[in-house]
Simulated assay, not measured.
Amino acid sequence: MTFSRREALVALGATGLTAACSNGVGSSNAATIDARVDQTLGSLFSNYPGTRDLANKSVGMLVMPLVTEVGLGFGGGGGNGALRVGGATVDYYSMVKASGGLQIGAQQYSHVLFFMTSEALQNFRRSPGYAAGANVFYATPSQGENLNAETTTSLAPVIAVIFGQSGLRVGATLEGVKYTRIIP
Rank of each mutant, 00 (worst) to 15 (best):
M1Y: 04
F3V: 03
R5K: 07
A8Y: 07
L9Q: 12
L9Y: 07
A11P: 04
G13R: 11
G16C: 15
L17E: 15
T18V: 13
A20I: 14
A20T: 15
S22N: 11
N23S: 09
G26F: 06
S27L: 09
S27Q: 08
S27K: 07
S28N: 12
N29C: 09
T32Q: 08
T32P: 02
I33V: 14
R36F: 07
Q39H: 08
T40M: 01
L41N: 06
L44S: 03
F45M: 09
F45L: 07
N47K: 14
N47V: 03
Y48A: 04
G50W: 02
G50T: 04
G50C: 11
G50S: 12
T51W: 03
T51Q: 05
R52G: 04
R52W: 01
D53K: 09
D53R: 09
L54K: 01
A55T: 01
K57R: 07
S58Y: 04
V59T: 12
M61A: 11
M64S: 08
P65H: 05
L66A: 06
L66I: 06
G71V: 12
G71Y: 03
L72E: 12
F74C: 07
G75R: 01
G76K: 08
G78P: 15
G79W: 05
A82L: 09
R84G: 09
R84D: 02
G86H: 05
G86P: 00
G87M: 11
A88E: 12
T89I: 03
V90S: 14
Y93K: 05
M95S: 09
V96M: 10
K97W: 03
A98H: 11
S99Q: 05
G101F: 00
G101C: 01
Q103W: 00
I104E: 11
G105L: 11
G105S: 14
A106T: 15
A106L: 10
A106I: 14
S110G: 11
H111K: 01
L113K: 04
L113Q: 06
L113E: 07
F115I: 03
M116V: 09
M116C: 10
T117A: 14
S118K: 10
A120T: 07
L121Y: 11
Q122E: 14
Q122I: 10
S127V: 00
S127D: 14
P128W: 11
G129C: 14
G133I: 03
N135L: 15
P141D: 01
Q143P: 15
G144R: 05
N146E: 05
N148R: 06
A149L: 01
A149S: 07
S154F: 01
L155T: 05
L155M: 12
A156W: 05
I159E: 00
I159Y: 02
V161D: 09
I162P: 02
Q165A: 08
Q165G: 10
S166E: 13
L168R: 08
R169C: 11
R169S: 15
G171C: 04
A172R: 06
T173S: 08
T173F: 00
L174H: 10
E175D: 13
E175W: 02
K178Q: 13
Y179R: 01
R181G: 00
R181Y: 03
I182A: 01
P184V: 02
P184F: 04
